[in-house]
Design a protein around this nucleic acid. Sequence first.
DNA 1: TTGTCGCGGGG
DNA 2: GTGTACGCGACAA
Length: 803
Amino acid sequence: MAGVRASFGVTGDDAWLWGWDATPAIVSVHADDRGEAHIWRRPGGGSLVHETARFRPWALLATLDDLEASGVPFAHVDNAAEGPPVGSPDIAVQTLRGPGALRHIVSATRWRTLEAAVCRGASQRLGRRLTRLQQLPPGERHVLPPDEQYLVATGRTYFRDLTFAQLHRLQFDLETTGLDPTQHRIFLIAVRAPDGRVRCLEATGDDDAAEVALLRRFVKVVRALDPDVIENHNLHGFDLPFVRTRAKRLGVPLHLGRLDGVPLLERAAQRGARSERDTERRVRVVIPGRECIDTLDAVRRYDFAVRELPGHGLKAVARHFGLAGPDRERIPGDRIHAVWRTDPDRVRRYATADVVEVEGLARLLGGAAFALARMAPRRYERLADAGPATGVIDPMLVRAYVHAGHALPAHEEGDGTVHVGAALHLFTAGVATRVVKADVASLYPSLMRAFRIGPRRDALGALLFLVDRLVDQRLDAKARGRAAPPGSDERFTLEAVSAAMKLLVNSAYGYLAAGGGLTRFADVHAANEVTRRGRETLHVMCRELAARGTTLVEADTDGVFFAVPEHWTEADERRVVAEVDALLPPLVRLEFDGRYAAMLSHEPKNYALRAYDGTLTLRGVAFRSSRAEPFGEQFLREAIAHLLAGDVAAVRAAYLRTVDALHAGAVPTVHVAARVRLRKSPDAYARVRATRREFPYEAMLAAGRDDWEAWQRVRVYRTPTGGAVIDEIDGDVDAAHDPRDYDRAYYIALLRRTFVTRLARAFTPDDFARVFADPGQLPLFDSDLASVRPVATAIPEAWAALQ
DNA sequence: TTGTCGCGGGG
DNA sequence: GTGTACGCGACAA
């Protein structure tokens, strides 16, 4: 199944990583059941080239019994991609080497031919009528979508020799009268052209005719600009399904793609919108010839690793990354249409900001998917929303096996062995000073490489091979990226490649551990061996660090926090890390990751760090949570800063100040309010109100508001008589609205109950009671606090386990 | 109370 | 035409 074999730079085993066909600058692929592939290329970033090619649709089968039983003739060949010799039957079979169950590549001129033949035989064998190959038992077939059949068979990938900047990318954003395309209309579409120009297409009225005209213009504009990529935030969850439904209802043909006469198509996608036909199915819209990229996917993929975004909405993310200008127009979602009627310019500015920010966001976070598309045999848009293990590594392994002429194992359920994860130890709770963090970068892939732990059924050793190559090539890409001029295309590309490779390397273990037969080569025993070695490594790190005079605080998976003696210098700290590093297996490198003046260790994975320059870092749900009332978070930050600076009197002062401020109503209203999302409509809540009252809705009603929309986000807070509400615009509130009518006693109690308690580990029970005694209680003098010192408490079980 | 499901986003 | 996780709230049992 070699297809066009390499006669160019990419040869040999690198084919497993990069494919083997050097065709440059593919920007989109569309293939169909009839064996026709359309390839759009943009060589050198210049003008677009549209090529068509024939390919033989193919599938992997475990048995030829069905084909034989069907009576349909077929020929054995050496290469199913090339097909049978002249005069032979249309159906060709290439039999693969090795122990895997899926050992026959069956191909034909058209998909229907091979599907019909196999299904005829299989229907007899299984005693039920089969019409689709997918109806065969899962272990007996592997069927790819046509685009992927084409890419695997040819060894082609997207974007060879092309930079991200050379892609023609268009962003569009709908403004609608509401969220439901069966009830609401589109009245404006902002379009940002690949050259950066933005225009707003607008409906000239609020009837069908005006919307029809708008949709027609939109189609015309997109076709004229002819972008390779279409981007927006929640493109697949909102804009594309919305525009499709509107077009259907209004009878407007939506020929947005590059193939004349081919309308929008669908593909199954776990995170797609519900299909209109079958609400069980989730689908995403496909525009043949263009790649539809949703920046929400990129944001989720980013935050999955980093966990620092306040939310995943466009406005919040754009602000977080500094993509939003200071005068960014903001309008609450449910007011956009009303504003449009009175101040259309405002809506134009708003929509324009949206597409401009989406462009920036796509560039900022889209590099990894772009680079993945150069490696894996899938469409760019699919790689942008795929999970790295099942969505990227698995297809690469399938391509490697097929290319090597090796049979693939079928998916296999585990044998019931449970997967055991990483180690997590809390050695010390409370306040520690002179703290060092040391960790092993990429612990699991390093262990896989060091001890050659790979899937048992991976006869070719392809996964370990890929990890080895990815680690090497990533180091190379990183180094070259650093050498490239800042801001250059080359640097962007190399950094993107490096990011993509890191993603893959770190997913290799997840690939092994994926349960329930998720990945083809999943192997719980191998995964357990990786985590066992990981726990062992962590144990060695802890034991050896402790043996060198440090005090362990917390150890988690691949990293350790430990405190060092008073007189140690940074050089001493680095020395012990290096000493322990020398005891670890080859390829497993313990690195010095940071040093801190003090640490509050609350619970596993919940701690605060004070750097030597005073910078405070809070980690874990105990210290940061989107739902927490801001006054409480502010108090915690302040109190912990003083605590870690060793100033207990200031901790008490912060407490007293907060209590006083609440008592006097000096805390701004918005600082006591919690963010909530109203999911129930007023009617829906009215129906359940008798049986169960929920505070946010009660607050709305108490405020005399019974007209909210489901999904609306508001801030709510307690008043002495019930609740009250503050409106939110893209995560912000109107600062001028500040009635200070909150229930002061309630919030003082809340301060104690949920925030002060998070400092309990820092003191002995007596001292804790002293530091946080009620202001109105016994008079308390500074001298009472002078003797109070933050404490650290050893957790005996954790230390005992070290032996 | 406990377990399961679905959400996160878009106007 | 498969398949991310994590924490949380809603709902059913």
